[in-house]
Amino acid sequence: MSAEPLLQVEGLRTHFFTKAGVVKAVDDVSFSVARGKVMGLVGESGSGKSMTGYSIVGLVDSPGRIVGGRILFDGVDLATLDPVAWRAIRGKRIAMIFQDPMMTLNPVLRVDTQIVEAVLAHAGVSRESALARAREALVRVGIASPDERLRAYPHQFSGGMRQRVAIAIALVNQPDLIIADEPTTALDVTIQGQILFEMQKICAESRTALIWITHDLSVVAGLADTVCVMYAGRVVETGRVSEVLGQPLHPYTRGLIDSVPSRNRRGEPLRQIPGMTPSLLGMGEGCAFRERCPAASAACASSPGVAELARGRFVRCFHPVGEPMAAASP
């Protein structure tokens, strides 16, 4: 890639120091996102997607802590910022959208009050122009009668409408980067389709970079330019969406894609990944996927590093799919 990426995460580690032991929620995570591009961050529940997002926006709470790595945002390492410096960036240059819009919205405040406050927190403008921006943000996310909605309370809205308002708040200060944490997971496919449509348009027009966190590969397929697949706190595969979905190199990615119903003959048993995701508590040495992996060998008892197998294709595996299994022990 020629242009300097807007966000570059390198070797990020966010661990939770619980009574029961250390939970390595994010463990050596690296990826980058350029302006105007969409990156899908995919993985099953507990794989560390949200904590990766929270680390970038400085929302990791005790007993969790960033213990290693760099988060280079437009040249500044966010991992070294103090809370005050964080607050100046969050909501202004980096915005986060949560699965539950009520994480963003206050149920007892009118929508106009909430959006205007979000504007005034970061911009020295008059209340009138803040209100004008609020209205404009609602229009951008496809809300039909913005003036009426501005005067309403969040509890009067459907789930889909609430999420639109939360997205409008994220957009209102024209951030450079938006991190969206499964914002359409709880919504119907038709509403999800509408929101994905708006987000795609907005990011392309305003050159906003977008990280879309989801467990759903099919959402990423239609929306993202690049994808980063996580398993048990680690990134196992990254690359362009068409390449990763078209020719997955990591056995876990491959297993996920193979189990999607449309990739199977109707009515027949789906190809499935056996077993279940491991607990991150006190995870030992070795590839975290090895108990479930059809390609596992003795080598997999130590932890594989990340290798760039083709330009922009990073894989963390001793025996990537499609390579001869020569390395496997007898």
């Binding site: 496919v189 038709t190 999800q192 759903d216 397929a221 239609g222 330019d225 969406v241 979905l245």
Partner: peptide, 24 residues
């Protein structure tokens, strides 16, 4: 027809989402 058009698929192709209007 509208519902089927919204089924996300994993076939890798970036598409412009063409949603149906409104909510139930």
């Amino acid at each position: 027809q509208a519902l089927l058009a919204e089924i996300p698929t994993i076939e890798p192709r970036k598409r412009a989402f063409q949603p149906i209007r409104g909510e139930i």
